[in-house]
Design a protein around this nucleic acid. Structure first.
Length: 646
RNA sequence: GCUGAUGUAGCUCAGCCGGCAGAGCAGCUGAUUUGUAAUCAGCAGGUCGUGGGUUCGAUCCCCACCAUCAGCUCCA
């Protein structure tokens, strides 16, 4: 089932990085119109290059990412053109191509209703039918500005004013509609035969919450209806795999309005999976030289003042007590580091103690803003296997490598090793308030991290402004069913907190030094990992993770006793078993066990009871025939040991 | 926090222009004792998210709040 857990892109295109609002609209692509281009296969306004498809008359290849992007970029202009026709007072912002579609941001009074979208789609149909040629032209800055002022487009004027001095200022015109745009576009609106406006949303102008919120319309477009329908069907399929839906259906978790947002209840089956994962993680960490700690869930503000959380993370914390009223303030912990450092500080350390690897399965509390919560992916309380490694500079690379190796081992074990991407998260030097420490320390830590990443040969993207407040991170991200990426694992290098907490070691030469601290997680943000696993396996977990591994299905009431015996035998051997002893027909019991996604069903009637055997049914493969119970337990046992994927 | 949508039985969903709340599945009871994806019948189940307001009368209209979803911003 390739592309596990994704919205399949029907054209197998390389995925773009997660959308950043400002990205494509104004990348000046220093462009000249493709000379003599004819037909809508040609991309208009790209850097001179060999035609993607071999010649002006060749059919364009929608699988080609540059053509597809130009195609959808033109679709976004068709959208904007339709909106301007229907709502002339609307101001245009930006309208880039994104993965699987496009959007356009408008400054529009009120919002776009579903009826509005239908009307806009109808208008777009007309624009497509009218076969407008798309023309590109450039203007000097002053004229470009004048044109946009004349058209009453303040956002476009602002964009022009922010363009670098040497940028070509290009426009694209189709019919009566002209838009400031870097392109590229296809040459005729008629190619956009199949499209759909998929949703509306608010989005801040230029991605800053200080700015006005604009109305965004999302859509997607394809050369023909068949491809559009295939895409929409894939989106529907992804919804069926959504952990938030499946996880509730399978009774893994639930939420309760009057408990609050981001505070899921893990039901017995969900809790069981998390327990299995947690034991697996802790055992592996112990094998790799980590020592387990258990530290408090809250602390006085004093601790967070030392760590920097009080000044740089307070909005993210649940604080009890108000210092401004002279009360003692306590805060629930949003991270484990300042607590675990106390273990290091408990006695004086020497270089011989390093590296010191401390792990803890800790429950953390973060006061996420109210619009952020989502199923098990974004919650306010979660449990994570964190570790902090204190080491010397020469040990750092080795330790970092060890963290990455552990992360990969675990991802491979649970089956999340595909769909992984690496992000090197750096600080934003223009936003000093967010971070502790001076630029020299940041530069040093980031340079070192980059060097290590490059030594490891990782294929990563860099992200400015994504660092933790105390240091840069390597974020290991996993795509969910909807194609969105979430950080599951992070490895961070910290040059700062050891000094703040006075953590030292005596080196060989007798001098005191601060250790470097590596902060790392594993797959052990258990709620999020569970969410991703639900989506990965569509709820049908591998046997080693399945909350119920075997369902016993006695044919009739008289077989219940035999079923109980078999259940007891299986439980003795550590298997997770349920028995369906209802007075129902076997077909119904099987159907329900299948829907519960239990890996194995054991059907037992007179034949099996008489011969001490079981009729094995695999959820995936159906009836496997009758066999002695031991044969089945051998099979299941090895599947569990080997962590076989379904 | 911001924009928008949504909230009816445990679940999935009907419920017109304001006039006593409906189905299927699940549950319970009875019958059936069943051989690889749904046996039949009956019963029970709802302060229509919560709190205000308008109205003779509110699931329906208005306001606030809570929660969920799609995004934005933020983030494991």
């Amino acid at each position: 089932m390739g592309g596990l857990g994704l919205v399949p892109d029907p054209h197998g295109g390389r995925r773009a990085p997660r959308v950043r609002a400002l990205r494509p609209a104004l990348d000046p692509v220093g462009a000249a119109p493709t000379a003599g281009a004819a037909g809508h296969g040609i991309i208009l306004g790209t850097k001179p290059q060999t035609p993607a498809t071999g010649g002006p008359d060749a059919m364009p290849d929608f699988a080609d990412a540059s053509y597809r992007d130009a195609f959808r970029h033109t679709a976004s202009h068709i959208l904007a053109q339709a909106v301007k026709r229907l709502y002339p007072e609307t101001k245009l912002a930006i309208g880039p191509t994104i993965e699987n579609g496009f959007y356009y941001d408008f400054d529009h009074d009120g919002s776009f209703t579903p009826e509005d979208l239908t009307a806009i789609e109808a208008e777009m149909e007309k624009i497509v039918r009218d076969h407008y040629m798309v023309e590109r032209f450039e203007l000097p800055r002053a004229e470009a500005r004048a044109l946009m002022l004349e058209k009453g487009e303040p956002y476009k004027v602002e964009l022009i004013d922010d363009l670098p001095a040497d940028a070509a200022i290009s426009f694209y015109k189709q019919g009566e509609f002209t838009d400031l745009c870097a392109g590229p576009h296809i040459q005729n609106t008629s190619a956009v035969r199949a499209f759909k406006l998929t949703s509306t949303a608010g989005a801040y102008w230029r991605g800053s919450e200080k700015n006005k919120m604009l109305q965004r319309i999302y859509g997607t477009a394809f050369p023909d209806k068949k491809q559009l329908d295939a895409y929409l069907a894939a989106v529907e399929e992804a919804k069926r795999r959504d952990h938030n839906k499946l996880g509730r259906e399978l009774k893994l978790f639930t939420t309760v309005d009057y408990i609050g947002q981001g505070l899921p209840i893990l039901m017995p089956k969900g809790a069981k999976i998390i327990q299995i994962l947690q034991r697996f993680v802790e055992d592996e960490e112990e094998r790799r030289g980590y020592q387990l700690t258990k530290t408090p869930f809250m602390a006085k503000s004093d601790l967070y003042k030392i760590s920097g959380h009080w000044d740089h993370y307070r909005d993210g914390m649940f604080v009890i007590g108000d210092e401004s009223k002279g009360e003692e303030a306590l805060a629930l912990r949003p991270m484990t580091c300042p607590f675990q450092f106390q273990v290091y500080l408990n006695e004086s350390r020497s270089y011989r103690d390093l590296p010191m690897r401390l792990n803890e399965t800790s429950t953390l509390f973060r006061n996420e803003s109210s619009g952020e919560m989502h199923g098990l992916i974004r919650v306010r309380q979660f449990t994570i296997s964190e570790a902090h490694i204190a080491c010397t500079p020469d040990q750092l690379e080795e330790e970092f490598r060890g963290c990455l190796d552990l992360a990969r081992f675990m991802l491979e074990a649970v089956g999340l090793d595909e769909d992984v991407s690496y992000r090197f998260s750096k600080w934003d030097p223009n936003n000093r308030d967010k971070y502790i420490g001076d630029p020299e320390k940041w530069d040093a830590a980031q340079a070192l991290m980059k060097q290590i990443l490059d030594h490891l040969g990782l294929d990563y993207v860099e992200a400015e402004g994504e660092a933790a407040f105390y240091g840069p991170k390597l974020d290991i991200q996993i795509r969910n069913v909807h194609g969105k990426e979430d950080t599951l694992i992070t490895v961070q290098i910290d040059f700062q907190l050891a000094e703040r907490f006075g953590m030292e070691y005596t080196d060989r030469d007798g001098t005191k030094k601060n250790p470097i601290v590596v902060h790392r997680t594993s797959i052990g943000c258990y709620e999020r990992t569970l969410a991703l696993l639900i989506e990965k396996y569509a709820g049908a977990f591998p046997a080693w993770l399945a909350p119920v591994q075997v369902k016993l299905l006695p044919i009739a009431e008289r077989h219940a006793e035999y079923a109980e015996k078999v259940a007891a035998r299986l439980r003795e051997q550590g298997f997770r078993v349920e028995t369906d002893a209802r007075e129902e027909k076997i077909g119904k019991k099987i159907r329900e066990a299948q829907l519960e996604k239990v890996p194995y069903m054991l059907v037992m009637g007179d034949k099996e009871a008489d011969s001490a055997t079981v009729a094995v049914r695999s959820r995936r493969e159906g009836d496997l025939g009758t066999m002695p119970l031991d044969d089945f337990t051998d099979k299941l046992g090895s599947e569990v040991r080997m962590r076989v994927r379904p």
